[in-house]
Design a protein around this nucleic acid. Structure first.
Lengths: 155, 155
DNA sequence: TATTGTTATACTCTATAACTATA
DNA sequence: TATAGTTATAGAGTATAACAATA
């Protein structure tokens, strides 16, 4: 792989057109993740907390299901949920069907924060993609869908 | 914002073509970062360690310069470099021009590991993009370059 | 016995504030 | 005084192993 693979390697001086596809995808991923991380931090959230809240927008899963979605060990979920609970963003509810289980759901405060984060992220991403043509928007969606499909097939 | 914003939200069932540009970019970024993280873990590296080693491939910066590149506080660098040093991947050298400073460089072992990581990452990304047409490869590079430029302009 | 979740423990990563040594 | 770097400390995030309670 050519020059970088990661940001921080190029100082901004390497906006070269010879950049390969791998570097393009890697650098783009760091750009988007950096934006996500900064907007999350502005809301006093970490990236994993944003993901947690995002999952809970339309579900009320148990701890194991959450762990699967986030690709974490179940033991890592306990602290993650507890910290979010301490901030009043989520709540643990006893599972009605299984005395061992708990269900995790958003509180109204958690939903508000999630919505505010999402709105701000949309705003920032819109600013970033403002200069793209309609054709380029279409390209992005198609390329992303294609690569996600390829990844799913490999798994 | 539509449905997700993050992976783990869609179960794989939401490969829908109505996905917006923001979601496309966010999901693509999680795909690439997930791959980076997994390949890094296969080499017993974290993402930030990969970035550190990547920076050192063609430089021998001081701690402050490293902190700037990685967007970390200088105090965070001490432990990061110390842990890498303990594993024999990098070394601290006294700065020849400044009695206070140290320069950080890759060891031969660190360079080997960096090269192995990079080769594996290339292999995995190549597998992912294997089915893309030449035109699509060009599109990715152009889109990435354009968005990185837009981000640079905003900063 | 198997499953759900927590606890105990240890490590990485990160920041803030205070410090040392050199410039 | 200012700068380069470390230390002390605190906290988030993660995993492994052992545990409790329920199925």
């Amino acid at each position: 792989m050519p020059p970088s693979h990661t940001p921080g390697l190029d100082d901004g001086r390497a906006a070269d057109p010879l950049q390969g596809t791998v570097d393009a995808l890697v650098q783009l991923s760091f750009l988007v993740q950096g934006l996500l991380t900064r907007v999350a931090a502005d809301h006093e959230l970490s990236l994993v907390q944003v993901r947690l809240l995002g999952i809970l927008r339309d579900r009320r899963p148990g701890m194991l299901e959450l762990a699967r979605h986030l690709d974490l060990d179940k033991s890592s979920m306990t602290g993650l949920v507890t910290r979010a609970e301490r901030r009043g963003l989520v709540e643990r509810l006893p599972s009605p069907h299984d005395g061992r289980g708990v269900l995790v759901g958003l509180t109204p405060l958690g939903r508000e924060l999630t919505d505010r984060f999402t709105a701000e992220m949309d705003r920032r991403m819109a600013a970033l993609t403002a200069s793209l043509t309609a054709a380029e928007h279409t390209q992005i969606r198609a390329l992303s869908a294609g690569l996600l499909r390829a990844a799913a097939e490999q798994a």
